[in-house]
Amino acid sequence: MAQFTLQINGTSRQVEVDPNTPLLWVLRDHLQLVGTKFGCGMAQCGACTIHLDGTAARSCSLPVSSVGNSAITTIEGLSENGDHPVQQAWIEHDVPQCGYCQAGQIMTAAAFLNQNPSPSDTEIEAAMNGNICRCGTYLRIKAAVKTASQNS
């Protein structure tokens, strides 16, 4: 067990956990931030995507001890009122079916659009390829990323 001070969604949070604990479980079990989802535990599905200093990262495979002072953003902290352009585009296209993967999809899309504000369809497809949607809402996800790129 060790103590860590994490910078999450603009706030300092302290936790005492095993240093090997993946950030995903620190968020979910210790900090009650359950918007970040558990899917596979091996960085294969993208459900657990968060931002580390603005870059998309798979929190299920990120030991808490490796995070340091990096700024962590989770879906809960992406915007104050759910009004980030990517979230707004998700509403416009009524993307989700079950909804379970969508926080991860949104976090991947938001980080991607920061790096590439005007992507082509092919670039969107490549950027979003790491996030599985079992319900198959890929066309809406792609359309929503496109819309967000035009509105941000």
């Binding site: 931030l33 359950v34 918007g35 970040t36 989770t74 879906i75 809960e76 992406l78 759910g82 979230q87 998700w90 509403i91 009524d94 989700p96 909804g99 969508q102 926080a103 949104i106």
Partner: peptide
């Protein structure tokens, strides 16, 4: 639209 849409996109439990 999906009545849970806003909860889904904001990570509400």
């Amino acid at each position: 639209k999906n009545v849970d849409l806003e909860k889904i996109i904001t990570g509400t439990p």
